[in-house]
């Protein structure tokens, strides 16, 4: 499966421009992490990719066919978990998944439901009414409905919100396995989720793509721009983007990213988070 985003711009009726002349090419197999601060345009991009919105300029091609003409084909191949969604509380987990399976037109819904319920660890709650589930369990039902029918395109917007660390790791692995033969797009604020499983990152800010590449490439781009130092007076920290402050017995140890590290800073090996922050902070300065 291939998605081509060509010169896509999106301006809302209230005048807010969410995306500016975006160009991207997304191909199977791939697990793409979509990073960016709030308001960067990630959710808008996702809505455009699931045809919940139409771009005000440019086009999105699904295997070469433009949306919305390819609307049906896209929906038939899509598993989508939005950031903010709801469920029919009066149904059981199985009934709800059965409903979604029918929407997707799955030929063997029972087998598909069993598979996804197992995949999201909800076997014990399969017959429970959704209104009785916890927040994390509801999130897992949301993931399960997206996975139903093994769709070749999976789009997850903040999928691990509300999950405990153990579950997060479970789902990271699940997404990773799913991406072996599919196109998976994962939008998240949790850098660890992306770092551990994504083979490609798209960093966005202010409606534009700042970076496209592998996590290693992003980390490399921050080499020499990450350092640690003992806390100083505020004036001396100008131009630095502090990413961590750790209280120790000897004082406060700071970690910062900057275009030019000050002489008192000791260079450090950048993490993906450092690299992301370096990229977005540099963009902000520019």
């Amino acid at each position: 499966m291939q998605l081509n985003i060509q010169h896509v711009s999106m301006t809302y009726p209230n005048g807010k421009q969410a995306l500016k002349d975006l160009d991207l090419e997304l191909k199977t197999p791939s697990l793409i992490g979509l990073l960016g601060p709030n308001g960067a345009g990630k959710s808008t991009l996702m809505k455009l990719l699931v045809a919940a919105l139409m771009p005000t300029a440019g086009s999105i091609l699904v295997d070469g066919e433009p949306l919305p003409k390819a609307d049906r084909r896209l929906k038939a191949q899509l598993g989508y978990l939005p950031q903010d969604f709801g469920l029919f509380d009066e149904l059981t987990v199985t009934e709800f998944l059965d409903y979604m399976a029918a929407l997707k037109g799955l030929p063997d819904p029972k087998a598909a439901i069993r598979a996804v319920v197992r995949a999201v660890n909800l076997e014990e709650k399969a017959r429970s009414r959704i209104r009785t589930l916890s927040g994390g369990q509801r999130q897992r039902v949301g993931i399960a409905q997206a996975l139903l029918g093994d769709p070749p395109l999976l789009i997850f917007d903040e999928p691990t919100v509300g999950l405990d660390p153990e579950e997060r790791i479970h789902f990271r692995n699940l997404f990773s396995r799913a991406a072996q033969d599919r196109l998976v797009l994962l939008s998240t604020h949790i850098i660890e989720d992306v770092q551990s499983v994504c083979d490609c990152l798209v960093v966005m800010d202010h409606g534009q793509v700042l970076f496209t590449g592998t996590p290693e490439e992003l980390i490399r781009s921050a080499q020499g721009h990450v350092g640690v130092f003992w806390e100083r007076e505020e004036a001396q920290e100008a131009g630095l983007h502090i990413t961590a402050r750790v209280n120790t017995s000897q004082g406060v140890r700071c970690r910062a990213v900057a275009d030019q590290l000050p002489p008192y800073a000791q260079a450090e090996e950048p993490t993906l988070e450092d690299a992301y922050l370096y990229l977005t902070s540099r963009e902000a300065v520019q």
Binding site: G86, M100, L103
Partner: peptide, 11 residues
């Protein structure tokens, strides 16, 4: 209940 976001993505 915002279920429409899920259903509209499928059908």
């Amino acid at each position: 209940s915002r279920v429409d976001i899920l259903t509209d993505a499928v059908v």
